[in-house]
Nucleic acid binder design. Structure first.
Lengths: 134, 134
DNA sequence: GCTTAAAAGATAATTATTATCCTTTGATAA
DNA sequence: TTATCAAAGGATAATAATTATCTTTTAAGC
């Protein structure tokens, strides 16, 4: 979806910096704040780290993006989509999405626990195909 | 299992501080470093934060404990056990284990991705039973 | 074009974590 | 059981990550 619309729908003002952040997330999938900062600097030479933190937090609050945390990994951010699995390679740190449907698992967990579940953070880690042979 | 044995089996020296850490994890399930520090201080009044960080890191390396990270939550640590689900209540911050077997999910993910998976960090969050009615 | 609240930028402050250095202690073997 | 020594503990400095504060700039509605 159009980033401008995405922002408006989440009650966030449209600014060039925010458009840049979303555009980067669309291209790279997951980004951490440092990546954001380094990449954004090329386009907005005077951008401040504070701006990035503030925007990430605002977007989190409005549930436009979601945060993924996992052992040995900086917090990463991605645009909200269906619950899915994140795969992390411990060797090369490749970090990718795997679109296995988690509905069944979540429903199951919800029934067994009586929790009303809204959000998932599922990270499986190990070795990617390449790193297994090396 | 006996904490002393647990430490030895993981090539870690047995110290009173380490026994204290494990004992706390056995009682509380998950702990973060701050909790560790505050609780341990009662027993070891001169314990240093550095000791806790160093021990947590040593135990992580030896795979005696595992780290759970999730949005809006400090890193928590627990003694290694079978892959399972963590439930987090966004309202009261209750954080509990749910023993749903994740083998099938992990096998599935492994097949689809060709990753050799070793570790899981699965956190589902929402509202616990109590907080739904309030 | 104005107006205004919100966002951006600069930077200080805070918090979390790691590094360093010296002292103490657990494990081993004489 | 005690002597040895590498490893662990404790104190604290250093670093990294994040948040807070304040001033300037800008997006959005009239």
């Amino acid at each position: 979806m159009n980033s401008e619309l995405l922002l408006r729908e989440h009650d966030l003002k449209v600014t060039p910096q925010r458009l840049g952040i979303l555009s980067l997330m669309k291209i790279k999938g997951h980004v951490d704040v440092e990546e954001l900062f380094l990449t954004m600097k090329k386009q907005f030479s005077s951008i401040s780290l504070a701006t990035l933190y503030k925007n990430v937090n605002a977007m989190l609050e409005k549930q436009l993006i979601t945060e993924i945390k996992a052992p040995k990994l900086k917090a990463k951010y991605e645009i909200v989509k269906e619950p899915h699995i994140h795969l992390l390679c411990k060797e090369c740190n490749e970090f990718v999405d795997l679109d296995i449907n988690l509905e069944t698992l979540i429903d199951d967990a919800s029934k067994k626990s009586n929790y009303q579940l809204e959000e998932s953070c599922v990270v499986l880690s190990g070795l990617c195909e390449k790193c297994q042979t090396n």
